[in-house]
């Protein structure tokens, strides 16, 4: 079987799966795994996949689908200095808080967050530029799952860390809470946010939320509708970071980033769009550095 055919088959399965429930999907995904393993070409197998410290049945498949697809991949290593903080048990499957801290890795290209056993496993890709390599956000989980952060450095090495979260299930196939309110369209893409600066710290804290249903497409009769990309720039137009978010991010995505702002920076510009072309463009005012005030 050629590589193209396999890929086509996998994407067909993904399409089919998006119409099914979380549990049914897992069964399909598992049955698809051996097919993919048997049919990878020599080029793919050149990078060996290390044993998973979280013992996930999906790990090999995740590595092939979401890490090795990046052309610059040369190596994958398990690295427990990549911290993924999450509660042990998801109290609310629609709002599971996650904090990823990859500050131990230098020269980062990007951070990819994956929840293996979610029907749509890929959570987000973050490319910190003028920003610290850490991020907080909330996700939906379909059932108990590993949540892992894979950090790609400039040498093509993926550093992978993660944790396991227990959950009772159902987060992905439930309709957004917003549909309980009649005014959800009126309030779509409302943006809230604020920047905190602490004297003596080079990074600021930026927390923002965008009002958006972030539909997975897995709830009956509701097509996928989600924010795809957010770009953050300083007032001087310099790129602070790119954030590509996927369906598993919680409704009304709420994110903390740690941009490194120049003292004179007065605002951070967030721009982006969802998969239906709705535009987001907002300036988050940055308070004057308090140390400057004291002088």
């Amino acid at each position: 079987m050629s590589k193209t055919n396999t890929k086509h088959k996998v994407s067909k399965i993904a399409q089919l799966a998006s119409k099914l429930s979380c549990a049914a999907l897992l069964a399909i995904a598992i049955s698809a795994t051996p097919v993919t393993i048997n049919s990878v070409s020599a080029a793919d197998t050149a990078v060996s996949i290390p044993k998973d410290s979280l013992n996930s049945v999906m790990w090999d498949f995740m590595a092939k689908e979401h890490l090795l697809t990046d052309a610059s991949s040369k190596k994958i290593v398990m690295n427990n200095s990549i911290l993924v903080h999450a509660p042990k048990v998801a109290e609310d499957q629609l709002n599971l808080p996650i904090h990823v801290d990859a500050r131990s890795i230098k020269n980062i290209q990007k951070i990819v967050v994956i929840a293996d056993l979610n029907p749509i496993p890929k959570v987000l890709t973050y490319e910190p530029r003028q920003a610290e390599a850490r991020i907080s956000f909330r996700i939906k989980v379909g059932q108990a799952t590993p949540v892992r952060a894979a950090v790609l450095d400039k040498d093509g090495v993926w550093h992978v860390g993660g944790t396991f979260v227990d959950a009772s299930g159902g987060g992905c196939s439930q309709p957004a809470v917003a549909y309980g309110n009649d005014d959800w369209v009126k309030r779509l893409a409302e943006i809230r946010g604020r920047i905190w600066r602490t004297p003596g710290q080079k990074s600021a804290k930026l927390r923002f939320s965008v009002r958006h249903p972030m539909d997975t497409g897995l709830a009956d009769g509701i097509p996928a509708f989600f924010i795809e990309k957010l770009e953050l720039k300083g007032a001087d137009g310099k790129l602070l970071g790119n954030l590509y978010i996927n369906e598993p991010i919680s409704e009304n995505p709420t994110v903390t980033l740690f941009p490194i702002l120049k003292e004179a920076t007065t605002a951070v510009q967030i721009t982006g769009r969802d998969n239906e072309g709705n535009l987001i463009d907002v300036a988050v005012p940055a308070p004057v550095q308090s140390s400057a005030l004291q002088n």
Binding site: F208, T254, N278, I280
Partner: peptide
């Protein structure tokens, strides 16, 4: 987990709204 998203919505300043 139950209360924080709602409390945050009340405390984070409103900045604007995207358009389609």
């Amino acid at each position: 987990a139950h209360l924080y998203p709602g409390i945050e919505e009340k405390t984070l300043p409103f900045l604007g709204q995207g358009d389609s």
